[in-house]
Simulated scan of single mutants.
Amino acid sequence: MTGRMSRDKGARGERELAGLLAERLGISIQRRLGAARDGGHDIDVPGWAVESKRTEVFAEAYWRQAQQQAEVTGCRPVLFWRASRRPWVAYVDLHDVSPAAFPVRGRHRCTMTMDDWCQLAREVAA
C-alpha cells in the first residue's frame, strides 16, 4: 500500500471511529487535525488519549504510542485497532479498569469491545 493510500485508510478509520464513539457516548467527538495533532493523539474524548489504527496486523508499537500520548497529555491511554471486516477492539491499561487491583499504570493491558470501553469511559467520567 502506498503512503497516500495508507494515510487515506487511516483518516477513514479515524472518521469512522469518531462517529461510532460520538454515537455511543452521546457527546461531540472531534478528530485532531494539523497542528493540534502534531505529536498528539488522534481523537478527543475527555480524559482519554485516543489512538486509532486501521491496519491488517497489530503491532506492539501502536500500544506504546498510545501510552506515550497519554503521558504527554495527562490522560488515560486507549488504542482502538481494526482490521478489515473486523470490529474495533479497544486496548486499555488494566489500571484504568481496576486501579485497586492494578495500582501501577503501564504494567498490564487488556482488550475489550468498543461497547465495553464506552461503558468504562462513562463510569470513569462519572
Rank of each mutant, 00 (worst) to 15 (best):
W63T: 00
V50F: 01
W63Y: 08
A11V: 14
G40K: 10
E16F: 00
A35K: 14
R31E: 15
K9Y: 02
L33H: 07
P103V: 12
G47E: 11
A61H: 02
D8V: 14
V92A: 12
G10N: 11
G40H: 10
F102G: 04
A101G: 11
V45L: 10
A126G: 15
R122I: 09
A61D: 10
D115S: 15
G3M: 06
L79R: 05
D8W: 03
A59Y: 05
R31T: 06
A11M: 10
D93P: 00
G39D: 04
R64I: 04
R12W: 08
R15D: 14
S6M: 13
C75F: 09
G34A: 15
D44W: 03
P87R: 10
P99T: 09
E123S: 14
S52Y: 00
A70F: 04
R76T: 03
F80K: 07
K9F: 02
Q69I: 00
E14H: 08
R37W: 02
R24T: 03
S6W: 07
R32E: 05
T73Y: 07
V72R: 14
P46C: 03
T55I: 00
P46D: 11
S98P: 00
I43S: 07
D115P: 08
E51Y: 01
G39F: 07
L33K: 11
P99H: 07
I29L: 09
R7D: 13
R82M: 06
R85E: 12
P87G: 06
S98D: 15
V89W: 06
V124G: 06
L120W: 09
P46T: 06
V92W: 07
E23I: 02
T111G: 07
H95I: 04
R109K: 14
L17C: 09
R109F: 02
Q67A: 13
D116W: 01
E51W: 01
I29G: 08
R105A: 15
M1K: 12
A18T: 11
Y62D: 10
K9P: 00
P87Y: 02
I27D: 06
E51F: 01
V50C: 00
R122M: 14
H95N: 14
R82N: 01
P99R: 09
D96Y: 10
A49F: 09
A18R: 13
G10I: 06
E60C: 01
R107Y: 13
G40F: 05
R82W: 02
P46F: 05
G19W: 00
A66W: 04
A100Q: 13
A101M: 05
A121Q: 08
H108I: 01
I27P: 12
H95Y: 15
G10L: 10
G13Q: 09
D96I: 08
R107Q: 15
E16C: 09
V89F: 01
L33W: 05
A22M: 08
S28A: 12
T2S: 14
E14N: 08
L94S: 10
M114W: 05
E23L: 11
A59Q: 13
G74E: 02
W117Y: 13
C75D: 12
L20E: 14
F80C: 03
R64E: 11
V50T: 01
K53P: 04
T55Q: 15
Q69P: 00
D38S: 11
D96K: 04
D38E: 08
R32M: 09
Q68L: 07
H95G: 08
A125I: 04
A83E: 10
H41C: 11
K53Y: 03
C75H: 14
R31Q: 15
R86G: 00
G74Q: 05
M5W: 03
P103H: 11
